[in-house]
Computed example of a mutant assay.
Amino acid sequence: MDSRMKKINFATAVLFVFVATSSADDFVPKNTQKPGESPLPPAESLRSLTVPKGFTVTLAASEPDVRQPIAIAFDDRGRLWVAESYSYNGSKFTDEHNDRILIFEDTDGDGVLNERRVFCDGLTHLTGLQIGFGGAWITAPPHLAFIPDRDGNDRPDGEPIVHLDGWSLKAEHNSVNGLTWGPDGWLYGRHGIKQPSRVGRPGSSDDERVDLSCCIWRFHPTRHVFEVVVDGTINPWGLDFDDHGHG
Score class of each variant (00 low, 15 high):
194 K>N: 15
119 F>L: 02
212 L>M: 14
164 L>G: 06
150 R>T: 15
130 Q>I: 00
116 R>S: 11
152 G>A: 09
135 G>D: 00
118 V>D: 04
156 P>M: 06
162 V>E: 02
172 E>M: 07
149 D>I: 00
150 R>N: 14
126 L>E: 02
147 I>M: 08
179 L>D: 09
125 H>S: 08
140 A>C: 13
173 H>A: 15
115 E>M: 08
148 P>A: 13
163 H>D: 09
212 L>V: 14
147 I>G: 02
168 S>V: 09
215 C>L: 10
210 V>R: 01
206 D>E: 10
169 L>A: 02
195 Q>A: 15
155 R>E: 12
180 T>G: 13
219 F>S: 03
120 C>V: 07
185 G>T: 10
182 G>L: 11
192 G>C: 03
138 I>L: 06
125 H>V: 09
213 S>G: 09
171 A>E: 07
178 G>P: 08
211 D>S: 07
221 P>R: 00
200 G>Y: 03
147 I>D: 02
156 P>I: 04
142 P>H: 09
136 A>H: 02
120 C>A: 15
171 A>V: 05
198 R>T: 11
224 H>T: 08
148 P>T: 10
126 L>W: 02
126 L>T: 04
125 H>D: 08
133 F>E: 10
143 H>C: 13
217 W>M: 01
210 V>P: 01
215 C>V: 11
134 G>T: 00
198 R>N: 12
212 L>W: 05
120 C>Y: 04
169 L>Y: 03
195 Q>V: 14
151 D>M: 05
114 N>Y: 05
124 T>A: 10
174 N>M: 11
151 D>G: 07
210 V>E: 01
168 S>E: 12
154 D>T: 11
221 P>H: 03
138 I>Y: 01
147 I>R: 00
194 K>P: 06
189 G>L: 04
136 A>S: 08
207 D>N: 14
155 R>K: 12
145 A>C: 12
223 R>D: 15
193 I>H: 11
157 D>G: 13
170 K>F: 10
183 P>K: 13
209 R>G: 10
128 G>R: 00
146 F>N: 04
139 T>E: 07
136 A>G: 06
186 W>D: 05
114 N>P: 03
132 G>I: 01
120 C>D: 05
168 S>P: 15
155 R>G: 07
148 P>E: 12
208 E>H: 04
166 G>M: 03
161 I>H: 01
214 C>T: 11
198 R>C: 08
180 T>Y: 15
142 P>M: 11
114 N>V: 05
214 C>L: 08
194 K>H: 13
122 G>A: 13
215 C>S: 12
182 G>C: 12
